[in-house]
Design a binder for these strands. Sequence first.
DNA 1: CTTTATTTGTAGTAAACTTACGTAAATTAT
DNA 2: ATAATTTACGTAAGTTTACTACAAATAAAG
Lengths: 285, 285
Amino acid sequence: MHSQNLINIISDQLPNLNKSESKVARVILADPDSATRSSIAALAKAAEVSEPSVNRFCKRFNAAGFPDFKLKLAKALVSGVRFVNRNVDPDDEVSSYTPKIFDGTINNLAMVRDKISHSRVNQVVDKLIQAKRIYFFGVGASGSVARDAENKFFRFNLPVSFHDDVLMQRMLASTGSTGDVFFFISHTGRTKEVVEIAEIARASGSTVIGLTAPDSPLAQVSSVTLDVEVPENTDEYMPMTSRIVHLVILDVLATGVTLRRGPDFLPHLEKIKNSLKPTRYPRSN
Amino acid sequence: MHSQNLINIISDQLPNLNKSESKVARVILADPDSATRSSIAALAKAAEVSEPSVNRFCKRFNAAGFPDFKLKLAKALVSGVRFVNRNVDPDDEVSSYTPKIFDGTINNLAMVRDKISHSRVNQVVDKLIQAKRIYFFGVGASGSVARDAENKFFRFNLPVSFHDDVLMQRMLASTGSTGDVFFFISHTGRTKEVVEIAEIARASGSTVIGLTAPDSPLAQVSSVTLDVEVPENTDEYMPMTSRIVHLVILDVLATGVTLRRGPDFLPHLEKIKNSLKPTRYPRSN
DNA sequence: CTTTATTTGTAGTAAACTTACGTAAATTAT
DNA sequence: ATAATTTACGTAAGTTTACTACAAATAAAG
């Protein structure tokens, strides 16, 4: 299991800190990387507190002292998480907003990586393995995720399709039967139309899988759900990253299915890969 | 390899070091983790050299001084455990392959984040801002990325469309004119059909943007390229992550365009957001 | 309003790190 | 081989950094 990242711990604890400690926390979270390179005096000055306050802050987070804290912070940064609550500012340059967006995405991925239920993943892989037929449903931005899922899963020699048209989805859901898997992808899990279609699919006796927000209406009507908790983007400039998390989870599921199929299945995948060769210019190097 | 691990660098350089420096190196390599926690005096004593020798050793490896060196060493230790052994094994359990896939994706994002050319991003944002019309083209897995791009960019009040059908793409490319932007998304940049279409678009006087592998045939026919170098997946079980990197880059571009449009444009985005409200179940909390 | 607890800062001290300089070792040339 | 020159290394001093003890200030409780 992954240990919770120091930066996340700090931002979680932010409300529980007293005045000067939270000042320190904010300065560190604003630019953790530069924090690892600065002295206790510099950090104290930046946070407008005294040096011992910085020291006390470090000890609160189970560090021996300031140098030890910096070390732990540096390690936390490597695992991919930087600029946690650095929002894009209206006057940001390319060189600022580019890493911020990457880091925001990376941060969300790391969070879901540590939170996702492995037993749920296993359950979903089970359902997908047993499926006679798989439908990936999504609308709007999730439609692209569903399309990508189709592209991954057709390799398993199963009847797979994706649909981003709600009328089509509704008709297919109503004709479902035992052994069919309807895989719903939705960021909010609150789109009425989608929830209704999931209910129809469920009523038809099919398996309904929801890749969506926990406790959402869609989650409630699903047979199995994969919970994805990604912070709502309050910031106007910050993109929605749930799509990307969804894609990675579908990668995980596809890998799970491949592994279950065993090594005998690899030649089939190889064949598909090779089929594309004649469409490409050969590599010179 | 571009980001060689500090520990490997030290052991590579071991024969080139002089007497006292190699003493220091051996002590550090024997237990790098404890080295990150010890003072310069303790390390000097353990290596039986003077403190300045340790300091000189650090500077030789491009550190500002001893503390900076310890920081870099600590980072190297973390990246070693997390990112090195990231291939999925045939006998991996859910609890193993799930974090591996997330980490693999995160690793690639971090690599591209550090490598991407900000001036290129700026150039592409320029072109998109000036565009009279934007076409996002992709086939196969990149088709989903193109579809997602359409979903992001239509918000800018521009004629935008995506196409995953090569015949459609070919026809549209031939009818292009100055002011049109054809945005090609391709992992390899070597699909003959796609390169041909890009050539047609280019010949029509339109701007061709390539989000693809550097130095690929597609990159060569593009007006501007955004290079994405993601390692080829030699491992059968590891998913292709370039799609995800492409999506994040499109997020970056969309943010760039939003920022250029300025704050007057925010109400428009808000309006689009609000338009979806009636389709959703309201949140209870 | 006083007392008590908590938070925060000041000042002093110890430790850690770096720099300058001088000596020793090694290399090269004579 | 030995002098000259370069390179390596350590001593000592200076500077920065971090920690501790204590006191002032603030907040909470009686």
